[in-house]
Design a protein around this nucleic acid. Structure first.
Lengths: 343, 343
DNA sequence: GGTTAGCACTCATCTGAGTCGAGTGCTAAC
DNA sequence: GTTAGCACTCGACTCAGATGAGTGCTAACC
């Protein structure tokens, strides 16, 4: 267990390093107004902290920088939870005051606001397919061969895809089926749509409708839900402004990873039981390219079920306190807005 | 006017520089199999070419690099038009053989293919609003206050936005209006929708329908077309692999510009009268950040009207011949596919 | 015992001189 | 008109020395 003084010194070092990106020495800590010890004392404590694994020395005659363990301790025990209303609150509140009337717009806009406020990269995950259900299904004929299938979800998102209609199937039959679907499948979660289609409607449809096989094929395509969740990135180039990423190769591997949707999805997926704000430091991200990055995520939800996540990606030397504060407010407000909107 | 030998030398220098990114000297040109002159002779010609403005010298004792004028000459007169079927053809043909049944998918996929093939950044511009017309309009109620307006366009794209429905307006009235719109406004270009709404339908609606004012407000929002055209970027990070962009600041200014939709739009907008493939070299892009970039664009069309553009962004030292070839094939095939699809 | 002043030591970074070599321009010979 | 030869230029690289921020250790101090 750390003594109070060690905690204070660790805190000071992390703070200093976060703002300067340079190894911090004993003298500079000693000179801060809030630390009443001489450099020598600080040095002794720093040596102890290094032994304990909270600090690292890039080379013998340089100052110390926090290790991953140091950041972890900082995040877990030292982050000044700015419960006080900060200037940030205003910006976020202003954002939610704006009237945006589509889920997609809100999320896209939120990503932009976040990256602008923090100067890091923001990653927003749209509402998950798992927790949205069918509100309405429609088939609009384009011509005699093709039609657009439109799926309106409970979160107000609209998905569409074009399907080919076999010539054997008549328009009136098609309509019958669509009506059937709407009466039976509304409020069924999207990912269950297909199985329910077979289990509950198969029999009935087979009775009433000719060309059952062909029709099922059409519906199969129509109800295929976008497995690829929508990911909104903003401020990816902010990575480039961080001094630790002046090496082009590192940045490239990070930016490339950001273009890889599946990997991002895995990273942002709300971990089981994880409530509130999660911080993954360096190697905790389980990805080489992110070894020098920290990812702070929060989830927003509806009815207690996580709908999507918000993430901020920055260097391990990140303004944890500020970002966590902002993320907390934003996820809370997003949750509140959703609750208000869909009740 | 350049002599044949000067042309050959200029060609050799540009080719060499394109593949090496290093200033090319007289000796290395001389050693190429296809040039039968000694370094000294080459040097003389190079000095002449420099006087004429086709070459530049980074410093006195370095080789020569092509100037913008040199690139321009190369592109206009020297590019080996590989009319022959290249290996690239296969990839592109394979792409079009795949069955993709939505315009958006095709474009998104094409952008990816392009950036992968060229290792540059590809920018695709979706079909312009100006040239697409209404195929179908629909209003799906979500609950008693809101509805989703769905616009299916002649190119098979589906746009949607959520609108609030004033309580005064009944469902049956709404339906009446939607039917009216579908019977009168189909095939009207999207950007004319609103004016036609007022000019052709205003009177009739006022006669049949109460709450005319409120209803018009709803339709106003519903028919608002996405002014922001969809832009598909792919391989933005390929910029980072080019040696001329190892300077992080330059890359950042380029990547930032790529995130700025309006600027990109302006750059990709098909220039008047420009048919075929356009090459904008360095400062011809009219943007500081692109001073060391070349942008090669082609358009694809339907019925002779430009629908959108394809662009490849790379360093001025770009594989012009290859990229122009690929772009030519792709735009032709895209045009052909559209024609086949929507006839 | 905790704290601090003092001091030798380390080591990354900066600086400037020296070297290297790719490439040029010019002249004279072929 | 072409080419060999040669002096010259100048960026890139190398290496030694200076610099200074920062450390660890010891001994004195409260």
């Amino acid at each position: 267990m750390l003594t109070d003084r060690q905690r204070m010194i660790l805190n000071a070092i992390v703070d200093d390093y976060i703002s300067s990106a340079e190894p911090v020495g004993s003298r500079s800590i000693s000179k801060r107004g809030d630390v009443g010890y001489s450099p020598a004392t600080i040095r002794n404590e720093m040596a102890d902290l290094e032994d304990l694994g909270y600090l690292e020395q890039p080379h013998t005659s340089a100052g110390r920088i926090p290790s991953h363990k140091g950041y972890r301790y900082y995040v877990d025990h030292l982050v000044p939870w700015n419960s006080a209303e900060t200037a940030e609150m205003g910006t976020i509140r202003a954002f939610f005051a704006e009237k945006l009337n589509a889920m997609e717009q809100v999320i896209q806009h939120a990503a932009m606001i976040l990256s602008n406020m923090t100067n890091y990269t923001s990653i927003l995950l749209g509402p998950e397919v798992f927790h949205t259900s069918l509100r309405h299904f429609q088939l609009l004929p384009l011509d005699d061969k093709t039609a657009v299938a439109i799926i309106v979800t409970s979160t107000g998102q609209v998905e569409n895809r074009t399907v080919n209609i076999p010539p054997e199937i008549s328009v009136s039959e098609m309509e019958k089926v669509v009506n059937l679907l709407n009466s039976k499948l509304v409020n069924v979660p999207l990912y269950k749509l297909k199985t329910r289609l077979y289990s509950e409607l198969g029999e009935e449809m087979q009775r009433h409708i000719s060309h059952y096989e062909e029709l099922m094929q059409v519906l199969d395509i129509a109800l295929e839900s976008d497995q690829e969740q929508r990911i909104y990135l903003s401020g990816a180039t902010n990575m480039l402004t961080q001094p630790e990423f002046k090496d082009v190769d590192k940045v490239k591997s990070i930016l490339d990873l950001l273009e890889e949707t599946p990997t991002l999805l895995k990273m942002l997926a709300p971990t089981t039981g994880g409530t509130g704000i999660q911080v993954r430091i360096g190697t905790e991200n389980n990805h080489e390219a992110f070894a020098n990055c920290s990812l702070i995520t929060a989830t927003y939800s509806l009815d207690g079920q996580a709908l999507g996540s918000i993430g901020i990606l920055g260097p391990t030397r990140m303004e944890y306190a500020r970002v966590m504060g902002i993320l907390g407010i934003l996820s809370r407000d997003l949750t509140a807005m959703l609750a208000h909107w869909y009740k």
